[in-house]
Computed example of a mutant assay.
Amino acid sequence: MRRGVMVAGALVAGAAGAAWLWRNQAEILTRRPVNEWTFTHISTVLPHEPVPRPPIPRPLPLRPRELTFTYEYGGARRTLADLHRRTFTTGFAVLHRGALVHESYPGRFASPRARFQLFSLTKSVTSILVGIAVEEGALALGEPAVTCCPELAGSAYDGATIDDLLQMSSGAAFSEDYDDPDSSIGQFERAVTAGGSLLDMARSMPRAAPPGTRFNYSTMDSQVLGWALEAATGMSLATYTASRLWAPIGAEYDAYHLLTRRPRVALGGASLNATVRDAARVGLLMARGGEVDGVQVVPRKWVDRARASTPGSLGADYPGHYGYADHWWTLDGGAFTGLGMHGQILWVDPDADVVVVKTSAWPTGDDPDLDEETVTALSALVAYLASSHSGA
């Protein structure tokens, strides 16, 4: 009898433990040291849809060189190796004048073939796709989101336009607080990993402001934008990415979009996984005004829109060195970046003709100090390359 009670107790405890793990898997998978593995193997954890590479990739010219620049941070002079160590870099590539001048993979599971989870850097790629869809006539910036997503009629998203979603000003209340498990983003992550309806979540969100009047960084705005893009084009996010972006840039490897467990839905703001080199090809496309080999893939005016926000204009809740436009973060000097939690960055500086990709495995989703050091270091790197006369 006693043994039976013990076995039953163990089973109950085991079931409770399994349930806890299931509910908290997002938290477990994104913390160090597990996240270094997760961020290159997440296709083994969640369902996904492939983004096939084209039959013939577009080669990146190789002009390797040593990057001997330094940067000042925290009262000390630091090197690129310091940046990688201090900010948990997993993959790193630099393009200058269209050539790959530096590439390294400090991460334990990283390599040129590894597909990295880009998190919210996906938002910037979704913005590129929206620009293409607008040029094709499938979407219009002034179009109400509910025209494409009638399921959201009567919700906080009723009245928001495609442009409002691009500018993160839908008016729907969404809290992007990574430190609070009960925030909107915490609930969003649990719905993705443990099963839940993002549509139901979007429908239930309260309104915080009239559409188009207040900036509020929101992954749900990007989610609705992705739904609108899929509805307008009649293609899944992965299929549209493959045909309109991966093929024209001559991507070297397949990418993939993560899908939620139940129901299976792509994430317009957080699901793209790609190699560092292919992310760099996306950056090169934007640095060259939307052109690839003389073909206008993205309208030039759309690229210009991504640079159209003044840094420091977002208010006290956001770092002063950033502005925001069309799902891109803007910086002084004309550079703009795609950013993802845990330290993913696609830095584009058209004037200096520099593109930098940095994937990372930060211990937490958001870290202002690590962000500030990365921006400081990459600004110094761009200045170093711009002043170099070595022919790189």
Rank of each mutant, 00 (worst) to 15 (best):
A335Y: 00
A335D: 00
F336Y: 08
F336I: 00
F336M: 03
T337D: 10
T337H: 05
T337I: 15
T337E: 13
T337S: 07
G338F: 00
G338D: 02
G338E: 07
G338P: 07
L339T: 07
L339C: 00
L339V: 13
L339D: 05
G340V: 01
G340R: 02
M341D: 11
M341T: 12
M341V: 15
M341R: 08
M341A: 11
H342D: 12
H342I: 11
H342S: 10
H342Y: 13
G343V: 12
G343E: 06
G343A: 04
G343F: 03
Q344I: 05
Q344M: 05
Q344E: 15
Q344Y: 04
I345C: 06
I345L: 08
I345V: 13
I345S: 06
L346R: 01
L346Y: 00
L346F: 03
W347N: 01
W347Y: 13
W347P: 01
W347H: 15
V348T: 12
P350S: 06
P350R: 15
D351M: 09
D351T: 12
D351H: 12
A352K: 02
A352E: 02
A352P: 00
A352M: 14
D353M: 01
V354K: 01
V355T: 12
V355G: 14
V355E: 02
V356G: 10
V356Q: 06
V356S: 07
V357R: 10
K358C: 04
K358G: 09
K358M: 15
T359E: 14
T359N: 12
S360G: 14
S360L: 14
S360C: 13
S360H: 14
S360T: 12
A361Y: 15
A361V: 12
W362R: 09
W362A: 06
W362G: 07
P363M: 14
P363V: 15
T364H: 12
T364Y: 11
T364L: 14
G365L: 07
G365W: 06
G365F: 08
G365S: 11
G365V: 10
G365H: 14
D366R: 12
D366Y: 13
D366E: 10
D366T: 06
D366V: 14
D367L: 09
D367N: 12
P368L: 13
D369G: 14
D369F: 10
D369V: 14
D371P: 05
D371N: 08
D371L: 08
D371Q: 13
D371W: 05
E372C: 10
E373L: 06
E373G: 01
T374C: 08
T374Y: 01
T374I: 09
T374G: 09
V375N: 05
V375E: 05
T376A: 07
T376F: 00
T376D: 10
T376Q: 06
T376I: 10
T376R: 09
A377T: 00
A377Y: 00
A377W: 01
A377F: 00
A377H: 02
A377E: 03
L378M: 12
L378S: 06
L378Q: 07
L378F: 14
L378H: 09
S379E: 11
S379I: 06
A380R: 08
A380W: 02
L381H: 07
L381E: 03
L381K: 04
L381N: 03
L381A: 03
V382S: 00
V382R: 07
V382I: 09
V382C: 10
V382W: 01
V382G: 02
A383N: 08
A383R: 11
A383M: 10
A383D: 09
A383V: 02
Y384W: 13
Y384C: 11
Y384I: 05
Y384S: 04
Y384V: 04
